[in-house]
């Protein structure tokens, strides 16, 4: 082991580099999100600020549209918690990789670095979760995310309608990239997605519900459908209690993350770490 400070610096640098490809993907999506933000009444600076402080694709989409729809702060808070509930799961999963005795400020930093993609690369990395790696990733990825959003607001509206129309589906493409691949591992997810599409369509068209705001529709349907599936198809694994939970936490994450997690399995490392990797996959009880 090197000097600790050197180590932190190295992890930060690796994080910076890892964040670049993530940021390129973010840029395209946040640009199209900027077009939506603009329509909802956000200026270039306000959009930049939102992206820098919230950095959540689905969350920002909901946040922008709720504002545009004149929703209340309570609706906003409830929707942010529901839309970003996956971060609670990711945090719980990443928690298992935090070295014991890590100072609280470092734990908080690790938590703050979480996005779908940064979580993915963090959980897949061998060894303990590093606040410095997370911070490096965050800086690369989020600078592109925020600038993309600001640019989308600034020049999104001088683009021809045709281009705006095409770009506006980028966000939905990103959602699909998150929810579709996990179906390969768990067919029930596919059924849940199909049910969600159908229910969402019905709610948007039936006379009794079509006037409901899209935010409220999302809250209601998320609670109803997730509860229904939790009852009808509870996550199995009656096996060792602790291991079960950890697998669940991981599986709850989205697309790329699940693949990343699968890779964790293949990362053979020094004793304790290997044990941790396995524990994260739910392959054995919590032996520590």
């Amino acid at each position: 082991m090197h000097d600790l400070r050197e180590n932190h610096k190295a992890e930060f640098t690796v994080g910076l580099r890892t964040g670049i490809p993530i940021g390129i993907g973010y840029f395209a999506v946040s640009f199209s999100l900027g077009i939506i933000a603009k329509n909802c009444g956000f200026s270039v600076f306000q959009g930049f600020l939102t992206s820098l402080t919230s950095y959540a694709s689905a969350g920002q989409y909901i946040g922008f549209t709720l504002y545009g729809a004149g929703a209340t702060l309570w609706q906003l808070v409830i929707m942010m918690i529901i839309t970003n509930a996956r971060y609670l799961l990711m945090g719980a999963a990443l928690n298992q990789k935090v070295r014991e005795g890590t100072p609280l400020r470092h734990r908080i930093l690790i938590g703050l670095s979480i996005t779908d993609e940064i979580f993915g690369v963090s959980i897949a990395r061998p060894g303990y979760a590093s606040p410095f790696f997370g911070a490096g990733c965050w800086i690369s990825a989020m600078s592109m995310w925020s600038v993309g959003n600001a640019l989308g607001i600034a020049v999104g509206n001088i683009l021809p309608d045709r281009a705006v129309s095409a770009l506006s589906v980028a966000l939905f493409g990103m959602f699909l990239a998150s929810i579709i691949p996990p179906i390969k591992k768990d067919k029930v997810i596919g059924i849940a997605i199909a049910a969600s599409f159908a229910a969402s369509y019905l709610y948007a068209t039936l006379p009794d519900t079509r006037d409901m705001s899209s935010g409220n529709r999302t809250i209601m349907l998320t609670i109803i459908i997730s509860t229904a599936f939790a009852v009808i198809a509870p996550r199995r694994n009656e096996a060792p209690k602790v291991a079960e939970t950890e697998e669940e936490s991981g599986d709850g994450s989205e697309g790329g993350n699940r693949e990343m997690r699968a890779k964790v399995d293949g990362v053979a490392e020094g004793g304790n770490r290997e044990m941790r990797a396995k524990t994260l996959e739910g392959g054995c009880g919590n032996a520590n």
């Binding site: 599936f229 509870p234 950890e246 669940e248 599986d251």
Partner: peptide
């Protein structure tokens, strides 16, 4: 780790359902 199976299952489905409904 969270031990309650219902909460686990509920949280497991939340991201897929939310994103699907929004799409």
């Amino acid at each position: 780790p969270i031990e309650n199976q219902f909460i686990q299952s509920f949280l497991y489905y939340v991201p897929y359902v939310t994103l699907a409904v929004m799409t």
